Computed example of a mutant assay.
Amino acid sequence: MNKKRLSEVIPLWKADKRNYVKKSTFSTYVLLVENHLLPYFGENYDVQEMDVQNFVLEKLENGLSQKTVKDILIVLKMILKFGAKNKWITYESFDIQYPTSRKSHQIEVLSRTHQKKVMSYIQEHFTFRNLGVYICLCSGMRIGEICALTWEDIDTDNGIINIRKTIQRIYVIEDGERKTELLIDTPKTKNSIREIPMSRDLLRMLKPFKKIVNPAFYVLTNDSKPTEPRTYRSYYKNLMRFLEIPDIKFHGLRHSFATRCIESKCDYKTVSVLLGHSNISTTLNLYVHPNLEQKKKAIDQMFKALK
């Protein structure tokens, strides 16, 4: 067996992996490898469960989220399996313990009052950039999806927005040098390619523009050059500050859309499809939290049925 260090296996794994995943995914993998895995495990000929457990605790201690740490381990497993398959490294699967989280996860959502305030302000002060915020509140689109939206994706005849692409800035490490590039690509997963019907108000707002704009132009800039998520995020922040609305992340617009759908008794499967989630459990875990009233009702109904 020709044993190799992890730092020797990684370049071979990268060369192989590059052929099978999206460019943005590959760039994420490479970043996790460079920042976390190489410095910690690079010199190892094999990786023991205890090493991984210590690595996990150290990373959590340094403030990384459990999700990020789990993502790093997914990449580590891929590298180890690839190394083992080529007989360069021994790999035994590991079972990692995570400290129980005591915090309940709260998602950020605009209150109804604040949402109405934002929407009516945009109706009265139209700019293409403001329009993006309005569209997100009406459709639950992600920031990369709204930045990549062009006028040809908006079908005013059928009242539908077609989501086919997303835009993001990715890290590229070439010849040891880090740089970033703007990438326009298909959305997050195949379920993210979707059609979202427009509300009457949104349709009324977009119809007159659709007749006169260049279909290839981006909606947010009304120009052939897009704006990127980072820039749009800071535009959004300033708008919210100006409207004196509590500081919530841009992604909170998507959460607000989903929450309003659930509040108005939409069925969960439809909400899941509108959001482009790859499965309904994501939607349920994020947005469906029965309140005390609903819990009481469930208990009452159960005992009624017993009688």
Rank of each mutant, 00 (worst) to 15 (best):
C261Y: 07
I262G: 01
I262S: 01
E263W: 03
E263Y: 07
E263C: 05
S264V: 02
K265I: 06
K265V: 03
K265F: 05
C266H: 05
C266E: 02
C266Y: 11
Y268R: 08
K269D: 02
T270M: 06
T270K: 06
T270H: 02
V271G: 05
V271P: 04
S272H: 07
S272F: 12
S272N: 06
S272Q: 04
L274K: 11
L275E: 14
L275S: 14
L275A: 08
G276E: 11
H277C: 06
S278Q: 15
S278E: 15
S278K: 14
N279D: 15
I280V: 15
I280Q: 06
I280T: 09
S281F: 01
S281V: 05
S281Q: 00
T282F: 15
T282W: 09
T283I: 10
T283F: 03
T283L: 04
L284M: 15
N285R: 11
N285L: 01
N285Q: 02
L286P: 04
L286V: 14
V288T: 08
V288H: 02
V288S: 08
V288R: 02
H289L: 08
H289S: 09
P290N: 03
L292H: 06
E293A: 13
E293L: 04
E293R: 12
Q294S: 10
K295N: 03
K295F: 07
K295H: 09
K295Y: 11
K296V: 10
K297E: 13
I299P: 03
D300M: 00
D300F: 00
Q301W: 01
M302R: 10
M302L: 12
F303R: 00
F303E: 00
K304F: 09
K304P: 01
K304G: 07
K304Q: 08
K304N: 07
